[in-house]
Design a protein around this nucleic acid. Structure first.
Ligand SMILES: [Mn+2]
Ligand SMILES: [Mn+2]
Ligand SMILES: [Mn+2]
Ligand SMILES: [Mn+2]
Lengths: 218, 218
DNA sequence: CCCCACATTTAGGTGTAACTAACTTTTCTT
DNA sequence: AAGAAAAGTTAGTTACACCTAAATGTGGGG
């Protein structure tokens, strides 16, 4: 099956929104910066190809075939991000846009070679799991920094953002994968959490804390 | 100026056919595996954008702006080929197809990083010159093995083919960049040239000898 | 249970880039 | 120099993927 770049991005978006549940037209439109009317059109085409199950006004889910493609594209994306960071010295806030384009244009050969060169990594520079060649997703932490208690110490495992300003901010304050954070204060009035990284104090908004996933302990 | 992948490939084709002279509709169609009628349509659009000078029934030449883009795409192509060979262990017969797609999708950032990593190479794995960032082409040999005399010894500098079967054949017989060839026999009846690489004898058709460019001496 | 707000789809249209078939221009052959 | 062959262009379609505006469906509050 040879799909267009656009179709691949739709399948990936449906996978990432839905994660099993069905994705709505407007969520897909939002994520792809496209008009909802365009989404309806594309969903019909994807349903025609048996890549999604689509019920008018009810949203879509991926079929087995659609899910397989979504995972392949996601594997490309995250392997490329990892390669850019490891082999070419990109920062974690620079990798996303490059990977977003390249994911559609590399060959299986390229995929296999960079995977091997990197030692078949399981996580990308943001801690996102890289689907394996046979379509399985390595486990990820779902504990959010936002839910950690005052006094606890946690380890950063994943940052669920593609926004380069946010990523740069975090990096500059020492918040990177593997960093140990001590939660020194939760202010529920200002929705702010104060953490200490090494000896540096950082104030984080609740919004940011919702996209930082951690593991208890250090 | 943001051009489509297709437009970029047209400009590159015109550059490579013409090299100063004008390119004909059918040559472009041939090279891009596209219908001549489609070429006419595209040439009009490119002329509209002032990227080519187009006279109906008379062919096209690149404008300064068009040439600049062609050189940029060519730089991408050849840098990527070089990168694939040097950094990822591709063979010289595997690099072309991958580069043909990727050339349109990498960022300036990516271009700069791989160029730097490779030490700003001047030639790709086939000995083709890599345009510099400011659009200048390193010099190349135009001496064809086909024109070498019996008894001479020459050094392989460039192989002007993208055909992987040809490239694999040459590689397997020790004919690679830098290899020293002694022309031991020219048979003008069978249009065959016999050369010795190291101690191995290889018979080459005249067609192949026309795409092998050499430097006199070893 | 009706109405309204919102989500979604349909209808109609754009731009890109290809195709085939028919026509025109150029070039070659005699 | 005429006529045929080759090269190139025009006309009319197709497919893709987007858009806006108008119409329709859905689910919750009154
Ligand atoms: Mn993408
Ligand atoms: Mn990532
Ligand atoms: Mn190309
Ligand atoms: Mn090359």
């Amino acid at each position: 099956m040879n799909l267009s770049q656009n179709m691949e991005d739709y399948l990936k978006a449906i996978f990432q929104i839905g994660h099993g549940e069905s994705a709505s037209t407007s969520e897909i439109a939002e994520r792809l910066s496209v008009n909802p009317a365009s989404v309806t059109g594309m969903l019909k085409k994807l349903a025609e190809l048996k890549l999604v199950e689509y019920v008018s006004y009810r949203g879509v889910t991926l079929t087995h075939a659609g899910r397989k493609i979504a995972l392949e594209v996601l594997r490309h994306h995250r392997l490329i991000e990892t390669y850019l960071a490891e082999a070419l010295g990109y920062e974690w806030d620079q990798v996303h846009d490059e990977a977003e384009r390249l994911e559609h244009h590399i060959s299986e050969e390229f995929e296999d070679r960079i995977a091997k060169m990197l030692g078949d990594p399981l996580y990308d520079p943001h801690g996102d799991p890289i689907p394996t060649k046979d379509g399985r997703l390595p486990p990820v932490s779902r504990e959010r920094l936002a839910d950690a208690n005052e006094g606890e110490t946690v380890t950063v495992r994943r940052v669920g953002s593609e926004d380069s300003t946010t990523l740069r901010f975090l990096k500059e304050h020492g918040i990177r994968l593997g960093a140990a954070l001590r939660i020194t204060k939760r202010d529920d009035r200002t929705h702010t959490i104060t953490v200490h990284v090494q000896r540096t104090r950082v104030d984080l908004s609740n919004d940011v804390c919702k996209i930082i996933f951690v593991e208890r302990g250090s």
